[in-house]
Design a protein around this nucleic acid. Structure first.
Lengths: 216, 216
DNA sequence: CGAGGTTTTCGCCTTAGAATCGAAAACGTG
DNA sequence: CACGTTTTCGATTCTAAGGCGAAAACCTCG
């Protein structure tokens, strides 16, 4: 089991990697891994082990990506890995071990085995779901301004999104709502931004494209 | 490894199940399963074993669904299963063993373990992808009329779709093209239908919703 | 061989969601 | 209190999807 832990840091989408201290793939960067215990399913297991090894007590989202099973993906040994996409809100800074660092997903170091492919799979899954689910809740703080949310979406998607459109689309879908409160007013002038939150912190897809829709 | 093999038969979306001859879950209906060999990845393995056990030489599509790992899903033994969605074109009738039958996915018999859940996951994955990919190619024959395709989509989605709209949407997306030829002319009168084909037999997603799209 | 029935195909119109743009609102600063 | 700044709102445009009816192309039967 491998965990692709993603978070928005410094306006970029980054992934948590640790540096291997042993052969094979000595000194290369690797995804956190873990082993399944007898009394838990894979998702529980990922959550437990990330809480043990690193200080990620509450991941905001965990989902299965895919099984990686190419015969030669790890030398000398047959290893089947189930990969996961794990998300951390932008406003926490988990304490991580000394051999662990964050890297932008679009600027990875030399990774061990097929871990680069897995990171890219995690990135692509996240980007796709940003378009048709409320998964932004897992990247954003509990409350935020539209500008902050714009920054998060821009960083995650890899291109600039318009704040106006973002707010309108998410509002119409009913996944975004105003708290009524507003930020204390900035120091550089300008209208104080309103605070928003996601209506739900559980993943929900917006009636997926549903082309060829039945008469409603 | 478990294979959810789906096909359109008799205007309905059906799944292939075999009846268990031993405890546990005696006489209950079960998905075809297989074990991974040392020199193949999971997808190759599914293809190989379905070709061995049943007469499915060329599945038109195979993709991973998800890992099922709940501790008690199989009694007395810890079994982790990777489930697959496998598709068979509507114009072939694979020869299957005597203990194997097809069942409509919306009218399943008593299944073994959590296999009903897996069948429904396969069904839902297929339905979702029909809306935003060209996956219809895996359910349809190599060439077909719009009416036939309409029947296939209606059966798979579980509701009636309009032939007009189906043709227009798929054509605009560039996944459907006319062969130029036309069917010999029916016996019941009516304009002889034109033959169509999918432009590609590889899965491709139509620029997925791509909401918050970048300037193109 | 022409009228009537059948199925396919095409074009026009409506609807809905998304993208763009600019004006108005609400705040600091000098 | 004029001015710059940032947020917010509204009007318009754009694109894809859905609905509907007419035209096309074929059969059959009188």
């Amino acid at each position: 089991m491998l965990a692709g832990v993603l978070q928005i840091r410094d306006e970029r989408l980054q992934v948590m990697l640790w540096q291997r201290a042993k052969e094979p793939a000595l000194h290369r960067w690797s995804l956190p891994r873990g082993w399944l215990a007898h009394d838990e399913d894979v998702e529980e297991s990922i959550r437990r082990q990330l809480a043990e090894k690193v200080d990620v007590h509450k991941l905001s989202h965990v989902e299965q990506l895919s099984v990686f099973s190419a015969p030669g993906r790890v030398p000398d040994r047959r290893v089947i890995a189930t990969a996961f996409l794990c998300l951390v809100p932008a406003d926490v800074d988990p304490e991580v071990p000394a051999d662990t660092r964050w890297f932008p997903v679009d600027d990875l170091p030399a990774t061990a085995f097929d871990h680069e492919e897995i990171v890219l799979a995690a990135r692509d899954r996240l980007r796709a779901k940003l378009s048709y689910t409320n998964i932004g809740f897992a990247l954003a703080p509990a409350e935020f301004t539209v500008s902050e949310l714009r920054g998060i979406y821009s960083a995650a998607l890899g291109y600039q999104v318009a704040a106006t459109n973002l707010q309108r689309v998410l509002s119409r879908r009913g996944v975004l709502e105003a708290t009524g409160r507003t930020l204390p007013a900035g120091r550089s002038g300008g209208r104080p931004p309103a605070l928003f939150r996601f209506t739900s912190r559980d993943l929900q897809v917006t009636d997926p494209f549903a082309v060829f829709r039945p008469p409603s």
